[in-house]
Amino acid sequence: MTASSQTLPGALPPEQPSVPRPVPLDQALAAKASEAAAAVIDATMAENDGATGEELAAAEQRAGILFDAASVEAAVSAAREQAHAEDQAELAELREELVAARRELGLMASAYRARQAVLRLCEGRRGDDLLLVSAVAVAAESGTTALDGLPMRLMWLRSADVPEVTDRVQRTVVHCESSYGGRAELVVEGDDRTALASMLDSSIIRDVHAPCPHEQTCGSDIAPPDEFGWFHLDVGGLGEGLRWYCSPGCVNAAMLRAGRELAAIDEAADDMIAVDQAEHPGEYADEPAEEAETDARCARCGCTEDAACEGGCAWVPNAQMIDLCSACATPAELQAASWKTSGGAQ
């Protein structure tokens, strides 16, 4: 192919100016160092015509551009030693603070043990009882007393503070007296009250949460193989319908659980009403105030003196010390109270 036979495709595009590529930092620094070194050498040679290599090296050293590996290593070593010394000083200070904190914690623990020992030594004693100074000193010094291994014996004074059915906190306070004649109180709350009563006399009181030997059938809607002696009833408040119960104790436990669930629902409703009244006081301004309810009410069915059960009922004393009518009482409770039918509803 000859030059005359070539065809031109058209005008060529204008050439783009070349953009200089950025120079890395290390290369820029090296270039600056080289320029500085060249300037120093040129100045030295201009001052001293035919300067020797030693003179040029001395000039570079004076200008601070001469690389001295030994000087650099010495500077790095000095910096490391200084940092190590600072770290050691900080560690020593932290060790001293840790030792002081441990010593303070030890003193606090020793003071707490001494205080608890003195309180144990005084526990259960009368207010006018006299303790030997040596006994108090030993308790404060060693944190132990001669009575630590002995149980504290209490005598029941045949009295107790029993909560009302409407009380938010079901707490029973049993009044006792220590062997030293001091006053003591046994506080039992919630379901622990029934559990304690069932331990004292399981034939009358049964823990409402105690497992039943027939738990596969008792409390369910499955009929037992032998229905003789079983109870088939619907406990109001549980909303479970007809259920089978193997004994009066299980029936009583179901009724107590239902009563507590209804009381919890009523309490939650009262709390919601109180909150709503606090947030919207204007909506309740014209409503008449409800009269306080003072009449006794059965804890299981809710009957009162003015609204007795259908067919009549009467109040029955019971070990739980709650308001209980004869229609809701179990045969065991009726037998324990020696209750007999004496007429119509009260």
Rank of each mutant, 00 (worst) to 15 (best):
V76S: 03
A59K: 00
A75N: 02
A38R: 15
A51R: 08
R102Q: 04
A39D: 02
V76T: 13
L98W: 09
L56Y: 07
T44A: 13
V72I: 13
A57R: 11
A89W: 04
E86Y: 03
L94N: 08
A43T: 03
E90Q: 12
K32C: 02
A79D: 10
S77C: 09
V76Q: 14
E90K: 11
E97Y: 12
T44S: 01
A59V: 00
E97D: 08
N48A: 07
R103A: 11
E90V: 10
S77L: 09
A75Y: 04
A38K: 15
A79T: 11
D49V: 07
A57S: 14
D68A: 08
L91A: 13
A100Q: 14
A78C: 03
V72W: 14
Q82Y: 06
L66T: 00
L94V: 05
A100S: 03
R62Y: 00
Q61F: 01
A38H: 14
A78L: 06
R95H: 09
E60N: 05
R80S: 02
A89Y: 01
E35N: 14
A36L: 07
A74K: 15
A85E: 04
A85K: 12
A39H: 11
A58H: 09
D49A: 15
R80F: 03
A37W: 03
Q82E: 12
A51S: 10
T44L: 02
A78D: 07
Q61A: 10
K32Q: 13
A83S: 05
L66M: 08
L94Q: 08
A69W: 08
A33R: 15
A37I: 01
Q61V: 02
A39M: 02
A92D: 11
E81R: 12
F67K: 14
A101W: 00
A92M: 05
E97I: 04
E86H: 11
R102E: 03
R80G: 01
A58N: 08
A43L: 02
V99P: 00
R102G: 03
A38N: 13
Q82C: 02
G53M: 14
S71H: 07
A69I: 09
I41D: 10
L98R: 12
E60G: 03
R95L: 00
E93C: 05
Q88D: 11
D42R: 14
E73L: 11
A75F: 05
R80N: 09
G64W: 06
A38P: 05
R62M: 02
G53E: 15
E81Y: 11
A83W: 03
R103Q: 07
S34G: 14
S77P: 02
E73P: 01
D42I: 11
R80M: 08
E93N: 10
A75R: 13
D49M: 09
V72G: 01
I65T: 03
V72C: 06
A39T: 08
L91K: 12
R103T: 05
T52E: 11
A79E: 13
Q61D: 09
G64R: 01
E96F: 04
A78H: 10
L56V: 10
F67L: 13
R95F: 06
V99S: 09
A58T: 04
A51E: 07
A37S: 10
A78T: 07
S77T: 11
Q88T: 10
D42V: 11
L98I: 00
A100C: 03
E73Y: 08
A51I: 01
E93P: 00
A59Y: 03
E93Q: 10
L91Y: 03
G53N: 13
G53Y: 15
D49R: 15
D87M: 12
E47H: 10
A70G: 08
A101R: 14
